[in-house]
Every structure is written in C-alpha cells, then in structure tokens.
Design a binder for these strands. Structure first.
Lengths: 252, 252
DNA sequence: TATAATATACTCATTTATTAGCATAAATAT
DNA sequence: ATATTTATGCTAATAAATGAGTATATTATA
C-alpha cells in the first residue's frame, strides 16, 4: 500500500474535527478531488477512516456501533463536547477515562496536552493516546465487553483503587430525567462508584440523545458530578436537578 | 554541515511537524535532493522515519496501523506456526497469550475453538478474539507499551497471579543459541516468570528470524517450555539444548 | 417516482519523484 | 605525500503520484 505525506495529516484532521470532507481536504492540500478520494479510499481500506459520501469519518473504534450513529452530526457533536471537556483539564495531571464513545473523543482532544497520566477501562482509548509519547497510558484489567470495548468486573475495580485521579470523565448509555446516570451493564456500577470515590473532579460527558435512551443499571447520579458536558440544554427536570445539586452544565 | 549533524535535526523537524519533505530539507540545509534522499533512506532503514513519496513521516507504530492491514501483514509462516500451536490447544480450557505478533496470529487461529477463557497482556488480541462470543476475553491491566501494544509492569503481574492457565503461549523479541528467550524490555521478565509459574503447559511461538535478532532482557529459557513452535529447524546448539531439556520442537 | 445535481470509480497521459551508477571533492588513515 | 574512505553531486533510466476525461452511482429535489 502506498503511503503519502498527506495521510497522517488527514487522520489528524479527522481526529480533531470528527470528520473530513473531500472539498475541505482539496482546499487544504491544494490537490484535486480524485487524489483526495484515492487517499480516503486507501485509508478506509486499512480501517483508519471510514468512507462516507462527501468525505470520511473516524471509524467508531467501538466494536459494533451502527453505521448511522457514526455519521455526521452525532460525531461532530461529540467532538464539540469533548473539546469543551478537554479544555477544563490542565496538563500535568492524572485522569481517568471510562467507557463510551464520548470519552474516546475526549481522549483525542487530550492529545495536545502534556505530562498526563491517563488510566482507562476503555480499550479503544489506548491506541488513540499511544500516538502522543508525552502521555503515560495505563489500561485497567478486566473482562472484555464486546459491545463497546469496555473492561469490566472486579479486575477493573482493583486497578482503579490503586490510583488517585485529579479528573475523571464518565460516559454513559442513558440519562434519566430524575438525574440518574445509566449503563446497560450492572457490573459497571462498582467501577463508576470507585472512580468517583478516587477522583477530585468528576465530569460527565454525554450528548443529548442519551435522554432518549433507556438502560437498566444506575451507575451514579448527576449530583455526584462537578460538570455535565453536553450539546443541548437538558430537559427542565434534569436541569433543575443539576442546579439544586451544584452540578454545572457546560453546553458546547 | 556534516551528515551526523543533519540527521538529528531531520528527526527533530519530523517530530515537530509530523512530516518532512525532500524539497523542504533541500532548502533548509542547502544540499541537493539526492543527499537528502540518501539520509531519509538511512533513517528509514533504521526505523527512525518512514519514507513516503516526496518526503518522510513519523513511523506508524503497530498501534496505529489499521486493523485490516495488521491482519494482512501476518506472513504465511507466522500463520502456519500459529495454526500448529492452536491445534495443540483443546476447547474448554484457560489460556494465556502474551506479547508479540505471533501470539496475535495464535489468537486468530483460536477463533474456531469453543468455551475458552483467554487472558492476555497484548491489547491487540482483544479485538481479534472479540469476534467470537464463545471466548471469554480478559485483558490484564498494565502500562501501555507503545511499540507493540503490550501491557507491562506490576499491574499486569497482579492480574496474571489471579489465574491458573491450562496453556500459555509466549512470544518474544529474540532467541539466543544458548536457549535464552529475550525481550527488549526488562519489565517483561516478571510477567513471563509469573505466566510460566501459573501454567500447566507452556508453549513458545517464534519464527526463525528471531535467531538473528538481539534483545537485552532474558525473560525465560527454552528449557522451561514444553513445546517450541517455529518454521525452520533451529541452529544446532539450540536444537540440542531443547533435546537435552525435553522441549519438543514442532515445525510447521 | 422521476429528474437534476453531486459525488465517485476507472483508465490513461502527464508530471514529478526516486533509484542507480559514476565522477568529484573533502576528510582520514597509512 | 599518497592511498583510502566518506560525503556529495550529476545524469539517465525507472517508478510513482497526480490530474483530466468519462461512465457510473448516490443523494437531493420536484
């Protein structure tokens, strides 16, 4: 396979923006669309990007998310949320990133930070952060959850207990109007409890679609969070609940 | 300027910019393109940069390489070694797979087994095995080694100690004629000792090119292995050593 | 559903980069 | 001082990337 000077930069742009467009890359590099298309095709052949009409998006690094969810808006929203979240995190500190595609986006946004120690139970985050040698990456042990690459169970909790974090970024499967943070797996409850206990600042990062989802396991309550990063003003009951419990809402 | 002074600067520029162009370096150093090309070729031969048409980019570590490319990369002999190795492992048992691309090939060959519990400190193995729901996958914790996606250090050892394995498959960076099994990282020593200690049967899987490699850390000795899976008859001193220590050699 | 507007895949000519072999000049060793 | 190694530059042949034209596929719109 041919390698070119442009490919790493295309991937970099995709990581920052969540997506790339053929037109955008044409302007950026000053080459013709067919050249860009050729390279996007090659990047998609190797699995580094995923081709869509008009451009390409980051492959959902999670293992089985539907095509539609990866496209366009959702991913762009996630990148915006992730950027705001990463802005609140300084260099030279310790961070925990847990499961969820939003925390993966946060990982990408942290690539420009320095002197970080990042611990994660999300196996997809490891290759993202591996590109920056200034970030020490620790993966917790655990049983692999196929649906999203999460590492769960007692092994994960054991590892988390051995650290203290300056910041923790929590993702979730669903949000309930009464303030509950939900996951589809009961095993994640113990992990999130431990994370919150070991962390000075706890952030929740979740896009507004999570309010329309259902999930069985309550892993935490938004009152335990310091900041909730999201894309749209949450439903009034949830927003009021946040206000009453000193949880800041940060819109992007 | 002498060549020895130019090379570090080229690498420096590449680290800052992510890439270097032949033309750019020609302007920068005031030499001809062929001089630059020669040096880029040397830097690419030593693995410090990756040559591309028009310049060079930072080498993509195995971590960054796309999934399908990684699969295609596996040479036929590695697959053959892996197949023989997987044939010796029954269904319904517990297995440890450690670092190395050969153990990744073994993982692929295990996909048709059933009722396996696979524990690994190789992060690349998780997505391979995730495709078969009949295999329970456990990832050890540990510090991420960027060069190959290995999880190393005390966290990994802690996890390994909590299991007993029916089979362990060991990979390595290099093999020495006197029977020593070598890795480039001293931290892997503890892990491999623990693996051997916890396992009923220990297999070494390594292609013959490992005899031509050098690595500093002795992680084990082939006398501790039950079977050595490889593609060609090893050098006579090594073969004799195996014979004297009841280590079976299995050629593919 | 039909139609228009984009976007894409494919092939081939053109441009550009690369390799290889040889010549020259500087640095080092004998 | 002379030979030898090493770095560099030149030219021609080779290889690779690019861009243009055209046919096809996809998405948007009436």
């Amino acid at each position: 396979m041919a390698q070119t000077l442009r490919k790493p930069e295309i991937i970099g742009i995709a990581r920052r923006e969540g997506k790339v467009t053929v037109d955008g890359l044409v302007d950026h590099f000053g080459v013709t669309p067919q050249t860009i298309r050729r390279e996007l095709k090659e990047l998609s052949d190797t699995g580094e990007l995923e081709r869509v009409h008009g451009g390409a998006v980051l492959p959902s690094t999670t293992m089985n998310i539907g095509y539609s969810e990866r496209l366009g808006m959702k991913q762009a929203d996630k990148v915006d949320i992730a950027r705001k979240c990463a802005e609140e995190i300084p260099s030279n500190c310790s961070i925990f990133l847990n499961i969820g595609t939003t925390t993966e986006a946060v990982a990408s946004e942290l690539l420009n930070h320095e002197g970080l120690l990042v611990v994660t139970n999300n196996i997809n985050i490891a290759p993202i952060l591996a590109t920056n040698p200034n970030i020490e990456v620790v993966v917790t042990g655990g049983n692999l959850r196929r649906s999203d690459g999460g590492l769960i169970g007692d092994l994960a909790i054991q590892t988390i207990k051995q650290f203290r974090f300056d910041y923790a970024v929590i993702g979730c499967s669903a949000l309930h109007e009464d303030g509950d943070i939900l996951d589809f797996d009961i095993q994640e409850v113990g992990a999130s409890k431990t994370i919150i206990q070991q962390s000075k600042h706890v952030f929740l990062a979740a896009d507004s679609s999570k309010f329309e989802r259902r999930a069985p396991a309550k892993i935490a309550n938004v009152s335990e969070m310091d900041i909730f990063f999201t894309d749209k003003t949450p439903p009034p009951p949830f927003a009021n609940f946040c206000k009453n419990h000193d949880t800041q809402i940060q819109l992007s």
